[in-house]
């Protein structure tokens, strides 16, 4: 029973991680690639963390006392991923726009207009 839950979590996590890197190949410019590379890998990694936390808690419940620390440490890794990934993506997007990369096939660009006013 417990193995089935872990299999489902691992399956979702691995599927979204692979979709993220596939999107990195398929999308046309930096910003859309960030969509794929940030959202999908964050979501996938969180599900992989859930699988490992479930495994650690289950082993701990079965009597392997030191496996509780696997669950706690994985929880901290999950918090680190969840806090740092969107901020890093934001930094890359901003740097890309300031270094002059235009969004491909864009229908509207308000930031471009605002930077034009300042010059």
């Amino acid at each position: 029973m417990m193995w089935e839950i872990i299999y489902i979590f691992l399956g979702i996590g691995v599927a979204f991680n692979m979709l993220g890197s596939l999107g990195l190949i398929r999308f046309p410019d930096v910003y859309t690639r960030l969509h794929a590379g940030t959202k999908c890998t964050t979501f996938g990694s969180i599900f992989i963390c859930f699988a490992i936390i479930a495994y650690g808690l289950w082993r701990w419940y079965d009597g392997e006392k030191e496996m509780i620390s696997l669950a706690i440490h994985t929880f901290f890794a999950m918090i680190a991923i969840l806090l740092t990934n969107p901020t890093g993506a934001h930094a890359i997007a901003r740097a890309a726009h300031r270094s002059g990369v235009k969004p491909a096939r864009a229908v509207v660009d308000d930031l471009e207009a605002k930077e034009g006013e300042n010059d």
Binding site: V30, L34, G37, T38, I92
Partner: peptide, 9 residues
């Protein structure tokens, strides 16, 4: 920036 996105992923 494309390469940086790849490295971040």
């Amino acid at each position: 920036p494309d390469r940086v996105v790849g490295l971040d992923t």
